[in-house]
Design a protein around this nucleic acid. Sequence first.
DNA 1: GCGACTTTGTTCCTGCGTTCACAAGCGGTT
DNA 2: AACCGCTTGTGAACGCAGGAACAAAGTCGC
Lengths: 226, 226
Amino acid sequence: MTQPRPRIPEATVARLAVYLRVLTGLADGGRTTVSSGELASAAGVNPAGLRKDLSHLGPCGVRGVGYEVATLRDRIARVLGVERSRACVLVGIGNLGAALADYAGFGGRGFRFVGLFDAAPARVGQRVGGQPVRPMEELAEVVAATAASIGVIATPAEVAQSVCDRLTAAGVRSILNFAPVALVAPGDVDVRQVDLSVELQVLAFLGQQRDAGAPALPAPAVEVPA
Amino acid sequence: MTQPRPRIPEATVARLAVYLRVLTGLADGGRTTVSSGELASAAGVNPAGLRKDLSHLGPCGVRGVGYEVATLRDRIARVLGVERSRACVLVGIGNLGAALADYAGFGGRGFRFVGLFDAAPARVGQRVGGQPVRPMEELAEVVAATAASIGVIATPAEVAQSVCDRLTAAGVRSILNFAPVALVAPGDVDVRQVDLSVELQVLAFLGQQRDAGAPALPAPAVEVPA
DNA sequence: GCGACTTTGTTCCTGCGTTCACAAGCGGTT
DNA sequence: AACCGCTTGTGAACGCAGGAACAAAGTCGC
């Protein structure tokens, strides 16, 4: 009954999600097989690293040929746990929340939002992404009824912790937090933090560093023909 | 170079951005000093790691006391290049693009959008976050006029590469891509990828792993099925 | 049927990031 | 003025991720 779970590194899991997306696209395009080199280039990673990532799933390719697109896609989907659709609740239907609710990349990849919640009475009742926005009072009820295991927080930072508390109290065990605060949660709850502005600041730093120290750099920019 | 710039690890840079946000909040709250332990807890990291991160900036704390909030904040801001405001252009004003344009976390942290662009004629002319949406034809012009160094892509995946090409052609050297495709760009252009659904899939994986193996299994060392 | 080519899966190695633990330094107290 | 406790900064070890090279294995051509 147990899965092949010799512990997959988290960095590998993140890349597996990318491979899954690429493979889904290839399958929709009618491709039946793909080589590690091609897949790696489409995913933006090193071919050897890709093969190492896939090796965690056990042998799933054919030497001399490559990987069967549909088979590999299904296998990754099963390992990632997106084989069956997962119920998620989304709290905070501001600009970002509405964008997330509408984001096609979620529904198409095994996630479905079973409840959108907001504390502002003005927002409650509006329809976003085909669903009505519900008041916070219904949160526990919906989580219990749908067995939602994932909660997404897209509220202002000030209320994120209290939303987190309510989600965990309702039984949610996994939380994705877009608010720029570090949440504290019970040890058996997974919390992942996404700060949209952090990436922008890393970019600014790299740009400043490049501009400051690179002028005399050789950097003939050899092109890599794909 | 007068700058102590012996290469700061990228992971450290990302955390410095988080420290900067926490410090700004503390300063606004009137705090004058803070210890590494407290700051680390607010940022969700290990105290020793935080001190190591800060050590890249040179000594900036007082032993036995802690760090001076305002001083440390300004120092990190200078290192990250957030001291002066940076001009950014944003392409793709859909749900996500509108959320980004409105996101207060950007303007407050040294980034200002000097141009919002969309290919859909229906969107052009609308005002989002206090600015008008412009047609793609004006992209190169605006980038040249404002010396924007950062471009943000929030378009559908299909057109992201062509937008990337136009941005680089216009002179943008740093690109933040929210579209789920790996972009190819010249070697002197920094491209950073953010896939919102990847984090969700990592969460699903961790949740599945927890549910399947947590009851009493420490590490069963199971092997692959068939 | 056999050889050669292609591509996977694995192994080794190098470098980086993270953590632990300790010495150094400063403020407050007596 | 000297001691003591607190906190920083740094040095070292551990573990992990990434990259390159090699061997196994299967297919295609002759």
